[in-house]
Design a binder for these strands. Structure first.
Lengths: 232, 232
DNA sequence: TATTAAATTATGTCTAGACATATCTAATGC
DNA sequence: GCATTAGATATGTCTAGACATAATTTAATA
């Protein structure tokens, strides 16, 4: 006998099972919250929590008055941890090393200003650095920081601490956009990452904002051995 | 006067603001649920919901007895939509085309079996196909399907419908692993994607399971113009 | 003193009931 | 016929109170 108390987890997993095993078919209307609450011997709020989690995960679609149905085209989404290079390296059990290449305040090229949606050409802090795992180049970072939003950035040296870690403590963000792509290594990138020019590299780009104000644009280049893995 | 009724959204956003504006500093202990409930004039359950959302988003860390504190190293996570190639192409306003290259049941190479954690060498359904956007090659798909779990796969022709779409309707999955990387195009990939061998390509790999049973392994190759974008 | 047991505390979850809100259906009035 | 209005209904959210659970502190015991 299932002496298990009704918990939103139990209920969620059972409903998940019914969807997976096609007891509840895609597109089909499932029983209402009250009926399910009766079936599972739980309060409606508990069933509601289970249903909302499944809806959030994309396997159910809910509409007021219309009821809840199994998603026909489950627009499932996966999560990935926003990569923080130091943790990433240390989590693999490797020794993290950081090397500053350059740090200057300069007039940003138009492309950069455009990506940050800055109307006028602006003076930005430009930081270039290298992250190493067990003394092997792991990531080349090319970053632009908007000192209008982060005034402290003008005075930071970034000699001992990467701009990534520094920004975490100095400029929280409210929005971000991530882009991942493959590219061919430029001569400079190849030299820094100890690969040949034209070799494929895995590139991540991140722009962060505080409300509408652009904070930083970072370009992260990895040798092609890099893999970005995530589970669902 | 804030006549707004206390809602978990209002409370969540206000707390989010306090964190962003450093009223609540990273690492600091924030008031307990009861105190916050009193402050916002809401029930503890409502405050709890707001706090749980922020904890789920990674900006708060909660521990029983110890209380809630602002995450010191906000392990923020971003979501990305699981790419469904047809939708992806049509969403851009391009014309989707599908082209089957081959479909055979064959003894899978050891590498493939290993990745699917199949102990014995197995007969798998091997499908190779091309997805085009406005008649330009967009993605080369190389897929292995486990007929032990999806028996229908033996009889599917995949002539008119890509295995991706077909599987959505025939084999739901409970777990998935995604890998993204950069690689150099092989001769075959180059020919199909109309690029030169050795050119960088963006590769996505996906393995899906139903419980512990591996369903399918798919290798998706894009020319380097491809970008995977996601917002937070 | 070292170990174990009990009390404490903040979060985690559940319940029953209430009202809010979106949306569909049917009745009403012109 | 058509637009408006009034139910009906399923989900969305909130409340107050209760008990569960994890982690820590304090007290009791060997």
């Amino acid at each position: 006998m299932s002496t298990e108390r009704a918990s939103f987890r139990t209920i969620r997993d059972e409903m998940s099972r019914r969807i997976a095993e096609r007891i509840w078919l895609p597109g089909a209307l499932i029983p209402g919250e009250e009926a399910l609450a009766r079936e599972f011997g739980a309060a409606r709020a508990t069933v509601n929590r289970a249903l909302q989690e499944l809806a959030r995960a994309g396997v159910l679609e809910r509409k007021r008055r219309a009821g809840t149905r199994v998603a026909l085209h489950p627009v499932r989404e996966a999560r990935f941890i926003i990569p923080r290079v130091r943790q990433e390296i240390e989590a693999r059990g490797s020794e993290y090393r950081y090397q500053l290449l350059s740090c200057e305040e300069e007039l940003a090229p138009e492309v950069i200003c455009a990506r940050l949606s800055l109307r006028t050409a602006s003076m930005l802090v430009h930081v270039r650095c290298l992250h190493l795992a067990d003394r092997v180049p792991y990531q080349f970072e090319d970053r632009w920081i908007n000192p209008q939003v982060v005034p402290d950035a003008k005075f930071a040296t970034f000699r001992d601490m990467g701009p990534n870690e520094w920004l975490v403590g100095h400029a929280p963000f409210s929005n971000a956009e991530f882009t991942f792509m493959a590219a061919a290594a430029s001569d400079e990138e190849a030299g820094l990452l100890q690969i040949r020019p034209g070799d494929p590299v895995f590139v991540g780009e991140r722009i962060t904002w505080m409300r509408a104000e652009p904070i930083t644009l970072v370009h992260m280049v990895h040798p092609s051995s890099h893999r970005m893995v995530t589970q669902l």
